[in-house]
Every structure is written in C-alpha cells, then in structure tokens.
C-alpha cells in the first residue's frame, strides 16, 4: 500500500512542479487537469485498499464532476486571450 501510493505521490509531484514553474497559463491548466484526475484516482485506490465504499463513492463523484470547473475556467481564459489578441 505504501509503495503504490508513494509512487502515485511521486507522479503527482510532476504536474505540481510544472504548474509552479511554467508561466504559460495553458500549461498550468493542463497541470491542473492532470492533478485533478490523479488525485481522484488516488482517492479510489485508497478506497479499494481500505475496502471503504464511502470514500470510493466520493472518489467517483470527484472524478466525474471535477472536470466541469476546468471547462468553465478554460472557456473564460480563452475568451480573455481572444480579446487580448484582437488588438495586435
């Protein structure tokens, strides 16, 4: 359990580093998408290993609904970028 989750933790650090270092907002958004999916998968793994269905259901809901916020944010940022490039 420790080894599996430790490796997932290391994998989670990669997009966090990317979100921290990269100045391009789209790269940050990609890192956000990666992290949102990875964390919900980790919740599911923990739920299965502990045989705890309550956490499992929460993991499924976060995994399926979590991307909606991402879509809204991406839409707003895209519009902002369009407005900025109009004048160039």
């Amino acid at each position: 359990m420790n080894i599996v989750l430790g490796m997932m933790l290391l994998a989670l650090l990669i997009p966090i580093y990317e979100a921290w270092q990269d100045d391009d907002i789209w790269q940050k958004l990609l890192a956000f998408a990666s992290i949102a999916t990875k964390t919900s998968i980790m919740i599911l793994v923990v739920a299965v290993l502990r045989d705890d269905w309550m956490i499992g259901v929460v993991g499924v809901i976060i995994l399926s609904v979590g991307n909606a916020a991402l879509m809204l944010l991406a839409q707003l940022i895209k519009r902002m970028n369009d407005a900025a490039t109009n004048y160039e």
């Binding site: 966090i16 956000f32 992290i35 980790m42 923990v46 956490i55 259901v57 929460v58």
Partner: peptide, 23 residues
C-alpha cells in the same frame, strides 16, 4: 488555476483522512 490545484489536493487529503463528506 493554482487555487484549483489546491482544491484538488485538499479533497484528496480530506478523503484519505476519512472525511468523505468534507472532501
């Protein structure tokens, strides 16, 4: 965007610590 990442991590921590409703 980083606030979104922070929220995702927080949800993970809450779920792992056993607070499914908070997560």
């Amino acid at each position: 965007v980083i606030r979104g990442i922070f929220g995702a991590i927080a949800a993970l921590v809450y779920a792992v610590l056993g607070a499914a409703d908070v997560s």
